[in-house]
Design a protein around this nucleic acid. Structure first.
Length: 535
RNA sequence: GUCCCCUUCGUCUAGAGGCCUAGGACACAUCCCUUUCACGGAUGCGACACGGGUUCGAAUCCCGUAGGGGACGCCA
């Protein structure tokens, strides 16, 4: 097979004028990264905006780092994110295979062609020699790089060493006196002196290509029009430009996205916390909200909107407005956006999404720390909490849905609901300590009177019990401030001090549960220390 | 060390020579609403990295400096 034949195998796509073909090209080396998610959202939007195609390509040329299950994790992450590719090994498409180790002959063909044309050469240097060269260079304050040792080997010598089966790699022969420029879609023109670019390996000694060759070959034959990738690739783009040129191909458009930073403006890393899509999912971030967060920090809506759907992003996106400075992934902003999305969910949608969330947590076998946000340790949910809640929701879905809706109004992520909803289920109710109640209403007799009086009035009017009216009347009768009365009942009914308005709580709990709980409290309501009562 | 990219409130940003005594959003603070929490409303705090140019006029253009980030692998 020749390059020309391959060319015919992957003809130009029949797409509308201006359609963009984008691709996300992750390495299957672990959990899907937030940066991958960001690029996927952009890729998806670019393709949607122009009536193009979005491809998933797996770059598994680093055999040593490839991890089992990583491809599935990536697809799962993209599915969750809602930035699904149109083409890929599991999606179909006419430009596959979409996994690099399945395309090895293509790269070898390209590499061979480059050697024949004199734009690449066989290099027999050992790892040891390379290491030594680098060390020397660094110690002499020179920039490390290949020294060109095999660049001008005698062709006859190369031939004999090759037939002898000597290990070698193929390196790109970078011209010496030239300025290589390219256009970056967000930064404009960028130039490099060719002299600072070293002769990178294109084909490793095991016959597997490096990124520089593989990506160029694939982007060409997959007819990718726009390469969206992280800005860490800017400095190797000139190499890619050279590969395209020597292979006689038109380079695609390049769009380098910024790298997300942590609070200290460092590249977001494992150490600083939250780098995987899965992490955000575990926190209970909604997909739509996370997408919104991603495009919100990488692009400014013309009207200054913060909350808007993906379709609007795709429609209004202008690549020139993409940032060229790395944004900090601001958790406060994410929480804010997620909260807004949660509040707009209908009861049914909320229950559905929340159950999916719990199922995900359970299936991914979480430990207690996994929903723990660094900044909000109090929001940690244990695995036991998760299972308890899941069981309660299954046992009484109707009650569960009501609880969720009320609680979700007060939460910024699903993860907080786990903890926040406990008090409204039987499993999560613990009667308040008498001491705690005494802090709100020091007089034990009055506490008892509040609860008994409420129970009596509330139970007698099953149709439309006026919780507030009842309590205010009791307060007046006992000469207590509203707060003392309301808080006493709040603590008694829920065991906690922060809840929705009591009328909502009572409606949520239903009469039977209220009766049961208050009866429990009444058993110990007089037990607060006398010293405190005297106050 | 060399090369490349970047630099507006704490954060995300608007701003493409006069509309800027720099606008919005998140966060924060205070107040209002109020039975706690949340929501909502109001107000406030708060930035053009620095130094030179160009210009009648610069956040906006140019040059330097400083700072940050990235790259320099038979990793991607």
């Amino acid at each position: 097979m020749t390059l020309a034949e391959v060319e015919a195998l992957y003809p130009p796509r029949k797409l509308p004028e201006g359609a963009e073909v984008t691709r996300i090209a992750p390495s299957p080396t672990g959990m899907p990264h937030i940066g991958t998610g960001m690029q996927a959202v952009l890729d998806r939007a670019l393709a949607d905006k122009s009536g193009g195609v979005f491809i998933l390509r797996i770059e598994d040329t680093d055999l040593a780092r490839t991890q089992e299950g990583a491809v599935e994790a990536i697809i799962d992450g993209l599915r969750w994110l809602g930035a699904m590719p149109d083409e890929g090994d599991t999606f179909g498409g006419d430009y596959g295979p979409y996994t690099q180790t399945a395309r090895l002959p293509l790269y070898r063909l390209a590499a061979q062609h480059l050697v024949e044309q004199g734009h690449a050469y066989h290099c027999f240097c050992t790892a040891e020699r390379l290491e030594l060269v680098r060390k020397t260079q660094v110690s002499q304050h020179q920039s490390p790089g290949y020294d060109g040792h095999c660049r001008n080997l005698d062709p006859a010598e190369v031939a004999t060493r090759l037939t002898a089966g000597e290990k070698n790699v193929i390196r790109l022969k970078v011209p010496k006196d030239e300025t290589i420029s390219f256009h970056d879609e967000v930064r404009g023109n960028i130039s490099f002196e060719a002299s600072v670019i070293d002769d990178s390996v294109l084909l490793k000694s095991d016959g597997i290509p490096t990124y520089h060759l593989a990506a160029a070959v694939d982007d060409h034959f997959m007819r990718v029009t726009t390469v969206v990738r992280g800005e860490e690739w800017i400095s190797s783009t000139p190499k890619h430009i050279l590969v395209y040129r020597y292979l006689g191909w038109e380079p695609p458009k390049f769009l380098h996205t910024v790298l997300l930073r942590d609070k200290n403006r460092r590249k977001l890393s494992k150490r600083s916390g939250d780098t995987s899509l899965t992490w955000f999912r575990k926190q209970g971030i909604m997909p739509a909200a996370f997408r919104n967060f991603l495009y919100r920090i990488m692009w400014a809506h013309p009207e200054g909107k913060d909350i808007y759907p993906m379709s609007e992003f795709a429609e209004k996106l202008q690549v020139s407005g993409l940032p060229s400075t790395g944004p900090v992934a601001d958790m406060d902003l994410l929480s804010f956006i997620n909260g807004r999305y949660m509040n707009e969910l209908s009861a049914q949608e909320l229950e559905k999404q929340f159950m999916e969330y719990l199922d995900f947590l359970i299936a991914s076998n979480l430990t207690a720390d996994d929903t723990l946000h660094q900044d909000q340790p109090s929001q940690a949910a244990t695995r036991e909490d998760i299972l308890d809640l899941h069981k309660a929701l299954r046992e009484d879905p109707k009650h569960g849905a009501e609880v969720l809706q009320v609680v979700a109004q007060r939460c910024a992520r699903f993860g907080e609901i786990i903890f926040g909803s406990r008090a409204y289920f039987d499993y999560g109710y613990t009667p308040p300590a008498p001491e705690r109640m005494a802090k709100e209403c020091p007089d034990a007799a009055k506490r008892r009177r509040i609860l008994e009086g409420f129970l009596e009035a509330y139970a007698s009017d099953a149709q439309a019990p006026e919780v507030e009216g009842i309590l205010k009347a009791i307060g007046k009768e006992l000469g207590l401030k509203d707060r003392a009365v309301f808080m006493t009942l709040r603590l008694a009914m829920t065991g906690v001090a922060r809840t929705p308005p009591l009328s909502e709580v009572a409606a949520l709990l239903k009469l039977e549960r209220v009766k049961k709980r208050l009866a429990m409290v009444l058993e110990t309501v007089d037990d607060a220390p006398a010293a405190q009562q005297a106050q």
